[in-house]
Design a protein around this nucleic acid. Structure first.
Length: 492
RNA sequence: GGCGCGGUACCCAAGUGGUAAGGGAGAGGUCUGCAAAACCUUUAUGCGCCGGUUCGAUCCCGGCCCGCGCCUCCA
């Protein structure tokens, strides 16, 4: 089923398909690596991951490029303060960024493009703009895009800038510009700042030119899709369009996807509001990576998501339900054959699930048939109306669910372990939740041994000892489940 | 001021012109040595307010109230 995805440019749901019939060429704006990523950043990357994974599930090949902005004003400032080169400074946060993506099971794009490794392409693009009369150099050596050279400016964000007079806004930019709205392509260095010596002079690239140059370098002049956070629509993406289309006279991207913001307690997340969380903050509070992933993708990308800790608790419970069910299927014994009812239920759930995702990546709607199926199957199993082929059919549905959601498979131990190791290195152990430390104090092997001892004690009807062990484990966040099929345990 | 989005049960959150998915929490039950867990059942005569269109609107139109985002670096 082809994906119908909202297109900011056209304002409607458009089918998303590769123009060349082979691979979808998509560009997504990546991070500026000047600090640790926060959960708002990751909501965007997670939603783009949902897009990627659904396309792959649909059999669409991908050529996905993501930039890393590893030079900008903040980086230069922070690196100088730290007394290191910008390369040293950014390397650390870039590594942290990828660690965080891994923790959240966000797939890597096919191509990562660092700004500092594509200075030549940016300079070439600025030269072409200058030839077209759309770029000019100011007295200090900086280059600007002449907005008047691109009459369609504003077509993405639906802004009419014709009524905006120069000087109507206070422009604090200290550089010389022809028009207040003209944006920087290339910034001349102030004394001591990192810069490159190039054909257009000494300096560093502006943020917008990066994305135009790198997108076209890897994907050609006309992309199938360009994605990013909603805040980038204006001016960043508008500027990219202006720069690119002025040179190519072709649509820069046919399809634009914008992920709406994550709010915290109903407000935009910001450090000054005190509602700012990095992924690491949440992991150290004891929340599982899978719960964070599910919470951030369960509200469809086109809606604001109000992040709360209750939401994480809820996601944790939802995942537990799915994992417990999955375990019940894989470990249970079922007779040969199939029941028409379960086969039909599995088939319907699968179809509904895919249809929901194909409908503008409606993740909330996509979850529902999966949980419906869980309930139907649990009921059937309880009633003994469930056979081996039913299990296989349902496991196939869950496999496709996890192909996109990726939360049933339990990969939570490693991110938590890494976050703790990081906290240790950074001297931030004080931020670690006590329950998390308690849980870390017991190994799987030790748990297995205690569970075995408890089972033996129960068999000998030594309930006092059995309960003692149960309590001991509970204190370390380990939950024991006695069932007909045997004893299971899990970490809470 | 301009542009855009949203207000659905205790909480989160889908959705449709014909009478409300799903998750969480709560309650009841099954199971259990007990408990927990697990599992099942259950929970909105109503979808911000007021009009209109319609045989019929939560869903379409108009007005109003409230909240949020963008318009500046920002995912």
């Amino acid at each position: 089923m082809p994906l119908r995805l909202f297109n900011t440019l056209t304002g409607q749901l458009d089918p998303l398909e590769p123009a060349d019939g082979k691979a979808l060429r998509m560009y997504a704006c990546g991070p500026t690596v000047y600090d640790y990523g926060h959960i708002g950043n990751f909501r965007t990357f997670l939603q783009i991951d949902v897009l990627r994974r659904f396309l792959q599930l649909s059999g669409v090949a991908l050529r996905h490029v993501m930039n890393i902005t590893d030079v900008d004003d903040k980086i230069i400032r922070n690196a100088a303060q730290a007394g290191v080169s910008i390369g040293e400074y950014t390397a650390r946060y870039e590594a942290a960024f990828f660690e965080d993506l891994d923790a959240l099971r966000v797939q890597r794009p096919e191509q990562i493009a660092r700004a500092t490794e594509h200075i030549g392409q940016m300079v070439a693009l600025i030269q072409k703009l200058a030839e077209a009369g759309a770029a000019y150099q100011a007295e200090d050596g900086s280059w600007y895009f002449r907005l008047r050279a691109f009459p369609e400016y504003g077509k993405l964000s639906k802004k009419d800038l014709s009524g905006m007079e120069d000087g109507a806004r206070v422009d604090v930019d200290e550089y010389e510009k022809d028009s207040a709205r003209d944006f920087a392509l290339w910034k001349a260095p102030k004394p001591g700042e990192t810069s490159w010596e190039t054909a257009i002079g000494q300096g560093r690239p502006g943020w917008h030119i990066e994305c135009s140059a790198m997108a076209m370098e890897y994907l050609g002049e006309s992309l199938d899709l360009h994605a990013g956070g909603e805040d980038l629509m204006f001016p960043h993406h508008e500027n990219e369009i202006a720069q690119s289309e002025t040179v190519t006279h072709k649509p820069f991207a046919r399809h634009w996807m914008h992920v709406r913001f994550l709010l915290v307690d109903g407000r935009k997340m910001s450090k000054s509001e005190g509602n700012f969380y990095t992924l690491r903050d949440l992991l150290l509070k004891g929340y599982k990576a899978s719960a964070i992933r599910l919470a951030l993708i369960s509200v469809p990308y086109r809606h604001q998501l109000n992040f709360t800790f209750d939401g994480l608790v809820e996601a944790t419970a939802a995942i537990d339900r799915l994992r417990t069910f999955h375990q019940r299927l894989t470990e249970g014994q079922f007779g040969p054959g199939a029941t028409p009812a379960m086969q039909e239920a599995a088939h319907k759930a699968h179809a509904d699930y895919l249809a929901a995702l194909a409908n503008d990546l409606n993740t909330a709607e996509a979850r529902a048939p999966i949980f419906d199926l869980v309930r139907a199957a649990n009921t059937a199993i309880d009633q003994g109306q469930f056979l081996a082929a039913d299990r296989d059919a349902i496991l196939a549905v869950l496999k496709d669910f996890d192909a996109v959601f990726d939360v049933i498979a339990d990969n939570d131990a490693e991110p938590t372990r890494q976050a703790l190791a990081w906290a240790e290195r950074e001297g931030r152990m004080a931020e670690v939740a006590p329950e998390l430390l308690a849980a870390q104090s017991i190994s799987d092997e030790a748990i297995e041994a205690l569970v075995a001892e408890r089972t033996l004690a129960k068999r000998q009807r030594n309930f006092a000892r059995a309960d003692q062990i149960r309590n001991e484990l509970a204190e370390k966040g380990v939950v024991i489940e006695d069932s007909k099929d045997g004893v299971r345990w899990k970490r809470k």
